[in-house]
């Protein structure tokens, strides 16, 4: 399952964040997973609004795998990614924890940025094992296979 959101304003951040929350709830992510995904979404989407005047978020949700969020903007770019990823650095008034903080909430995190062209951040969060197993149990409870057809020839 996949889709995308255009993020221009603070309201867009909220609206898209709510959608992401709804999707992860439906897919059976744990509360902690959901809250951490929502928090990282808020951080990274806000960065696009504040630093680049907006951008686009693409999401990909795969069963038994996880959620990937790609944040892409055509803003000024991040001149020094290493510096931006270190705790405490910020070009605006925020605490500067948005980027490094989101990374800590991710299972996989990539930043590609070219000054003057824009920034692309990929955030990936696995669906945790016990959730996947719970889902398998659900399948087992249902009658999935028909064994009777093989017995007709006796």
């Amino acid at each position: 399952m996949n889709g995308s959101f255009d993020i221009i304003s603070e309201e867009d951040v909220l609206h898209a964040g709510n959608e992401i929350s709804r999707l992860t709830r439906e897919k059976g992510f744990s509360i902690l997973d959901r809250i951490q995904i929502r928090t990282a979404f808020s951080e990274l989407a806000r960065n696009m609004v504040v630093h680049a005047g907006g951008g686009k978020v693409q999401y990909t949700l795969l069963d038994d795998w996880g959620l990937q969020l790609v944040f892409e903007d055509h803003g000024p770019g991040i001149p020094d990614i290493g510096k931006a990823m270190s705790t405490g650095f910020s070009t605006t008034k925020s605490m500067g924890l948005g980027l490094p903080g989101s990374k800590k909430l991710a299972d996989d995190f990539h930043v590609v940025s070219k000054p003057g062209e824009g920034t692309k951040i990929t955030f990936f969060r696995k669906i945790r094992n016990d959730q996947v197993n719970n889902k398998n149990e659900g399948i087992n409870n249902g009658q999935r296979h028909d064994f009777s057809r093989g017995e007709r020839n006796g």
Partner: peptide, 11 residues
């Protein structure tokens, strides 16, 4: 089926 049952039991 066996696989599902085993993995559920392990979980």
């Amino acid at each position: 089926r066996t696989n599902d049952a085993l993995s559920a039991a392990k979980a």
